[in-house]
Structures are given as C-alpha cells and as structure tokens.
Simulated scan of single mutants.
Amino acid sequence: MEQPTQPGLRDRLEATFWERHANPWSAGTRILVYPVLMYAIFTRNRRLFAATLAFIAVNPVLFPRPKRTDNYLSRIVLAEREWLDEGKNTMGLDYPNVLNVLNIPVTFYAFASAIRRNPVGTVLGTLGVMVLKLWWTDAIVKKTGVTGSGPGDESSDDSVGE
C-alpha cells in the first residue's frame, strides 16, 4: 500500500507564503507601497527607498494567516495562486496577461518621470501601473472564480481560511 507523501520543505514554505500573503493587510499594503516607492525615487529619499524595498521583500510573510479570505483583497491573492498553480503565465498577448505586458512601458514611464522629477508624469505613470495591475488581478479573480472562505463556511479551505 502506498503511503501518502508528506509535503516537502519547499511546498510547506510556499503554502505558508501564500496563506500569509492572503491576509488583506498584506495585499492592501502591497498595493499602496508602489506610490511610496515612486515618491522615494522622486524625492531622492534613500532611507525611504531602502525601507520600501525591505517592506516589499517581507510583506508577503509579515502578516499572520487570515481567519477569513472572503474579502476582495484576499481573493486577489488566492486567485493569483490558483492562476499560477494551473500553470498559467502572467505575461502574454492573451487577455488578461496583455495587461501585464502593457504595464512594462507604463512602469518605465513612471520610473523615468520620477527620476526626472516630473510630478505629472510620476503621478500619471504610478496611477497607470496601479490601474493595470488591479485590472489584471480583478480579471483573474473573475476567471478563476475564487470566492475565499469565512467562518463556518462549509466550503472553506482549512489551509487558508482558518
């Protein structure tokens, strides 16, 4: 008789990453950190720039696993996980991945504007990056049908919804 295999260290770390990143505080602050990064570049504030990069690095595991994931911010993280687990790419000419492709020049524009200290270009570029990213995440939430889970939800995924 075949014994059930225990998940390896990498699988456990990856599960922990996604479970904690599904915390709405993680997803929400991750969205809001981009304008802070652009502001740090625009103002040449090295400390803020370094702190922002450090926050981006630790953000996905900074917050605890959420008790419920039936909110929009958790659902976008769960949808991204499901999208990637299904072997789907994040870049391409198909919808919604084309939104990420379009985001490349917009990101370059935002960074160039911040470096040149062009306030209008920095704001417009930053907004463009955020709109395209949120459009992509919203599209994959709809395509995957992820709903999240709440307390007492019988279809809840115990690995995330606790």
Rank of each mutant, 00 (worst) to 15 (best):
R47N: 07
I140S: 02
Y109E: 02
D153K: 00
N100Y: 00
A22S: 15
Y95Q: 08
F49E: 00
K142C: 00
R46C: 03
T122V: 13
K88Y: 05
G28M: 04
I76S: 08
I31Y: 04
M130E: 13
N71T: 12
E162I: 07
Q6V: 13
D70F: 04
A15E: 09
L99Q: 00
N59D: 10
L62Y: 05
G121I: 06
A57L: 10
I104H: 08
A57K: 00
G161F: 00
Y95M: 15
L73Y: 09
R10Q: 05
R46H: 07
D158P: 08
E2Y: 15
L62C: 13
L73R: 02
G92F: 14
D138M: 01
E86K: 11
I76V: 15
G28E: 03
W135E: 06
E86P: 04
G87M: 02
A57S: 01
P35R: 01
N97A: 08
L124M: 12
L62N: 07
T147M: 08
V101C: 08
H21Y: 15
V101S: 06
L127S: 02
Y109K: 01
V146I: 10
L37M: 14
K88S: 10
K142W: 09
E162F: 04
R10F: 14
Y95D: 10
T122G: 14
L99V: 07
G28L: 11
R20S: 13
S113I: 05
S74H: 11
V131W: 09
V98L: 15
T43P: 07
L124R: 03
E86S: 12
E80F: 00
R20A: 06
V123K: 02
R68A: 12
T29K: 03
A40K: 02
V58T: 02
V98E: 08
S113T: 09
L37W: 11
N100K: 00
P119H: 07
D70M: 03
P7C: 07
L48W: 03
V36H: 03
A110M: 10
Y39T: 10
Y34I: 14
A54L: 08
D157S: 03
S156R: 14
A15I: 01
T5I: 09
W135L: 11
A54K: 04
A40I: 07
E2V: 14
K67H: 03
L37N: 05
N23V: 15
T147G: 09
